[in-house]
Simulated scan of single mutants.
Amino acid sequence: MSGGRDDLCFLAMGFALSLALLPLLSAVDPGSLQDFCVAVEDPNNSVFVNGNLCKDPNRVTADDFFLSGLDQPGNTSNPVGSKVTLINADRIPGLNTLGISLARVDYVPNGGLNPPHYHPRATEVFLALEGKFYAGFVASNPDRLISKILNPGDVFVFPAGRIHFQYNIGSTAGRAVSGLSSQNPGIVVVANSVFGSGIDPSVLARAFQVDRELVEQLRKKF
């Protein structure tokens, strides 16, 4: 893995990419920042979710717009061999209302996978820094895979709401930076959601046209 100066340059490039996602006339999320918001009449039984409260401008400091440590690799010792480190308004308060976030992704050699998933509220611009990636997304109408082999310095775009993935097919550790067009992009990992959410096995067996026993085996993994 390259040294500190190169890391900072690459991360700066990634952040510049994420800035390029901002609309010219509006720099805020155009829609909801959560999956749903159930109405309540009792203000004591409510919670403010869609964004964050704003700090008094007179108390704002440079630290509200600053974060260090993104040069450190994430822990990839997990079944898929990857780690996403998301930088959003929870990590940098100054990002609140700016409609943008950033992620560093680390992958183990020879098979590190950011598994099929999608962001319900964000388009993603992916910048490969180290490794060699097989990456793609599934388009609709008709459903088809749009994929590419990516080398260091290559950029690929994953449109909002499209299932996508990155798979490190290189023999060295992989590293990438992504810019996302929402301060709260959300993530739905397909396998986790399908097999780990509690959907009745009979539904899944019929949907995937497989035996219920196989569905039960898959559910145990999630």
Score class of each variant (00 low, 15 high):
residue 136 G to R: 05
residue 120 P to W: 06
residue 64 D to R: 05
residue 66 F to P: 04
residue 146 I to D: 01
residue 109 P to L: 02
residue 124 E to R: 02
residue 110 N to D: 15
residue 88 N to S: 14
residue 118 Y to S: 00
residue 155 V to G: 04
residue 88 N to W: 06
residue 72 Q to N: 10
residue 73 P to K: 02
residue 123 T to R: 10
residue 86 L to D: 11
residue 64 D to H: 11
residue 115 P to M: 07
residue 113 L to Q: 00
residue 141 N to L: 09
residue 79 P to Q: 09
residue 147 S to Y: 13
residue 84 V to T: 14
residue 127 L to I: 09
residue 152 P to N: 08
residue 100 I to Q: 07
residue 139 A to L: 12
residue 130 E to L: 06
residue 66 F to G: 04
residue 135 A to M: 05
residue 122 A to L: 12
residue 78 N to H: 04
residue 104 R to E: 12
residue 154 D to A: 03
residue 148 K to D: 00
residue 106 D to C: 12
residue 96 N to K: 11
residue 85 T to V: 14
residue 88 N to Q: 10
residue 117 H to C: 12
residue 84 V to Y: 04
residue 68 S to H: 09
residue 79 P to N: 08
residue 92 I to W: 04
residue 62 A to P: 00
residue 124 E to Y: 06
residue 78 N to Q: 07
residue 152 P to K: 05
residue 96 N to E: 14
residue 81 G to I: 01
residue 83 K to Y: 11
residue 81 G to N: 02
residue 70 L to V: 14
residue 133 F to V: 01
residue 78 N to M: 02
residue 124 E to P: 05
residue 155 V to I: 15
residue 72 Q to W: 00
residue 80 V to Y: 14
residue 75 N to G: 05
residue 108 V to S: 09
residue 131 G to L: 10
residue 96 N to H: 13
residue 75 N to E: 12
residue 91 R to A: 13
residue 141 N to C: 04
residue 98 L to T: 12
residue 73 P to H: 07
residue 110 N to K: 13
residue 116 P to L: 08
residue 89 A to M: 10
residue 150 L to K: 06
residue 130 E to C: 07
residue 95 L to Q: 06
residue 127 L to H: 11
residue 106 D to Y: 04
residue 106 D to T: 02
residue 151 N to S: 13
residue 140 S to R: 15
residue 99 G to W: 06
residue 110 N to F: 13
residue 107 Y to L: 05
residue 69 G to S: 09
residue 72 Q to H: 11
residue 145 L to F: 13
residue 135 A to S: 15
residue 123 T to G: 10
residue 99 G to E: 07
residue 130 E to Y: 05
residue 137 F to A: 01
residue 137 F to I: 02
residue 154 D to P: 04
residue 70 L to K: 08
residue 92 I to M: 04
residue 143 D to Y: 14
residue 87 I to P: 02
residue 146 I to V: 15
residue 153 G to Y: 06
residue 133 F to P: 02
residue 134 Y to T: 00
residue 142 P to I: 09
residue 86 L to V: 15
residue 108 V to Q: 11
residue 68 S to F: 10
residue 141 N to Y: 10
residue 148 K to G: 03
residue 128 A to P: 07
residue 62 A to Q: 13
residue 136 G to T: 10
residue 141 N to M: 03
residue 127 L to Y: 15
residue 92 I to N: 08
residue 110 N to T: 05
residue 136 G to F: 08
residue 95 L to M: 11
residue 139 A to M: 11
residue 96 N to F: 00
residue 120 P to G: 04
residue 118 Y to C: 09
residue 93 P to K: 00
residue 86 L to N: 13
residue 106 D to V: 07
residue 102 L to M: 13
residue 152 P to Q: 04
residue 97 T to C: 00
residue 112 G to I: 01
residue 152 P to T: 05
residue 81 G to W: 05
residue 108 V to N: 09
residue 79 P to T: 03
residue 124 E to F: 08
residue 89 A to C: 11
